[in-house]
Amino acid sequence: MKAFTYERPDSVAAAASLAAERPNARLIAGGTNLLDLMKLQIETPTTLIDVNRLPLDQVADTPEGGLRVGALVRNADLAAHPRVRKEYGVLAKALLAGASGQLRNKATTAGNLLQRTRCYYFYDTSKPCNKRAPGSGCAAIGGYNRIMAVLGASESCIATNPSDMNVALRALDATVETADAGGGARTIPIAAFHRLPGDTPEIETALRPGEIITAVSLPKPVPGIHLYRKVRDRASYAFATVSVAAIVAKGDGGRPSAARLAFGGLAHKPWRDETAERILVETGSADAAADRVLAGARGYGSNDFKIPLARRTLRAVMDEAAHA
């Protein structure tokens, strides 16, 4: 771990100023991913801005009937929040499927949004990786890529976003709220927040330099059955190979009358295809929806299995929804 200067500003504005002024600064909240990466010198900030004591740890009702989740709300608290459990079940379930009790107690909402990939080669500084060392190449292509993307990947990067929470937020159409040093604030729809790798895989989100996440807003609850199915190699404490977040409303005869589907483990960002959702509602067929979602899927060898697995998992989720 490289040396850094530790700062503990006492306001969001001060944090934003520091983040803007200091070159190579990082905010630290839970630290569960950042310190992990700093120990391996994958992240090498020279200023670390501790935002843990900023007043961004509240969950509040919005006038629209939704929820506004402070950036520093811990994953565990969010999953345990009564309204999240009752009305945003997909989010609670996704959070509870992630990491461990200890990590959820520390990891924050904003930190989870910014969680970096688990790509093996990103984590090994002796290997080329365009995300870690732009221009060096991608060792995952042609390598062992069991956990890599099958959708939206590029010649530069086939990494996946490892978060469970993000998949649920995508299904819920959450909005990311930010602040910057100039006192500006903006909202970024979750769909636009995470990027595909393209030829700049090192740029993972729509955040601008120095911009700070202050909250995540959830629109008013989406009625229906909320499911989060995480497929993994061990029964707990493992990243998803494939996951499906689904909100399914049932109409006559149990057929889906409305559906939202987001996928984890398939791409550099949580993957959602609204057309596939329409197809699902129109045809009632999970396979037809999967055909649409996976139309452009491409395996890289050891991750080929994710394509049939995603289809089968969607089928299972729709089956579960039908019998719920």
Binding site: Y6, R8, I28, G30, G31, T32, L35, D36, L48, D50, N52, A76, G101, Q102, L103, N105, K106
Partner: peptide, 13 residues
């Protein structure tokens, strides 16, 4: 009172 991984947090925090 909350359980955490002490390896992934700085003493200063």
């Amino acid at each position: 009172g909350r359980r955490i991984n002490s390896c992934l947090t700085l003493a200063a925090m």
